[in-house]
Nucleic acid binder design. Sequence first.
DNA 1: TTCGGCCAGTTCAGTGAATGAACTGCCGAT
DNA 2: ATCGGCAGTTCATTCACTGAACTGGCCGAA
Lengths: 166, 166
Amino acid sequence: MALPSTYADRNCSLARALEIVGERWTLLIVRDAFFGIRRFGDFASQLGIPRAVLTNRLKFLVQENVLERVDGEYLLTAKGLRLWPVLRAMMAWGDEHYSPGGARRTFRHDADGGLLDTGDRCSTCGEVVSAPDVRIEPGPGFDPGNATPDPVSALLNTPRRLLEPL
Amino acid sequence: MALPSTYADRNCSLARALEIVGERWTLLIVRDAFFGIRRFGDFASQLGIPRAVLTNRLKFLVQENVLERVDGEYLLTAKGLRLWPVLRAMMAWGDEHYSPGGARRTFRHDADGGLLDTGDRCSTCGEVVSAPDVRIEPGPGFDPGNATPDPVSALLNTPRRLLEPL
DNA sequence: TTCGGCCAGTTCAGTGAATGAACTGCCGAT
DNA sequence: ATCGGCAGTTCATTCACTGAACTGGCCGAA
C-alpha cells in the first residue's frame, strides 16, 4: 500500500479514509496510541513492527494530522480521536466472529461505570461516550496465557482509561 | 500484508479483524458488495484492481466466510453483513475530514425515509437500522464531475437500497 | 572531560507481494 | 464452426516489507 496510493475512487470517503489509515500496521499504531503508548520504542516493542516501517507510519500520521509530536512523544490529535468509532467497530466485529469466549475487552463509561455498547452508548446514563471518557478492562474472552509478560503489556492489560499515559 | 500475516497481538480483536479485512483493497471489495456488485468483472472494473489480486482477495473472503459464491456470484454472508458498521464508521471519518462540501453519500432508513446518523440510528423512528434496510443516495459533498461515466458507476450513484443487485 | 547506556531513527540486502498487460479456457448465442 | 464476453491465470517488473545491524544525540556518572 504505497503512501499516495490513490484508490481511484475519489467519490467514496471510504477510499479516502483508507488512504490514510488503510496501510498495514497503521490502525494498530493508532490503537496503541489510544491505549496510552506515546514513545517510538514502546510502539516498536509492543507491535513487533520493523522500526523502519514504524518511522514511515508515524511520519505519515503526523503529516496527516492524526498524531502530533509534543516533547518527542506521539499524541492523538482531535482528528485522530475521531477514529475511535472505527476501531470500536472493528474490535466488535473481531470479538463477534473470532473470540468464542466473549469479548476480549470490556468498555465502560469512566464517570458512572456503565457498560458501553458497540456504539459506545452507556447503559447507565444513555449518553454516547467519547474516547477520553472510556475505561477499558480485560473482558471474558481475554486470555492471560496469551499475553506477553513485558511490563508494558502488563500495564495495558490492567483496567485504565483510554489515552492515559503509561 | 501477507495472508496469514499474523499480527502477533492475539489478544486484541482489532488485530484479528485486520488479518481478515486489513489487506489493501479488501474493504473496498466489501463496500462494493454492499453496493450491489456481485460479479468478478464488475468488481475489477469498478475498483481498477489487478485481476490477480482480486482473485486472491475474493478467494480469501469466501474462505473466511465473509462472502459466499452462489451461481457464480459473490454475495455477502451474515458475517459479511456485520461489517457494515465498520464501513460506516470509516466513511463517516472520511467525510468529516476529507470532504469539505459535506458527506458524499447520505443514508436513509428505507422504510420511513428517516436520515441515519453515523451509527445508523434513524432520526424518524429511533431504531438502529441494519444494512438491508439502508437506502443510500448521493449527498451534498458528492462530486458528479468526479464520477466515472460507465454504466455501472451511474447505477451506483443513483439512490438505491444496499445489497440490491445491479 | 570522557565513558557508557539508552533511545530514536537510518541503512541495507533479501524476500515477497502488488502491478499491468497479455493470455487461456469456458460457455452460450449466431 | 465461430464469435464474443466473462472468469481467472501467467509472467516479468516494480515496489514495499522484513529483520538485523548500524549511527548519532542525549543524558548521567566517573
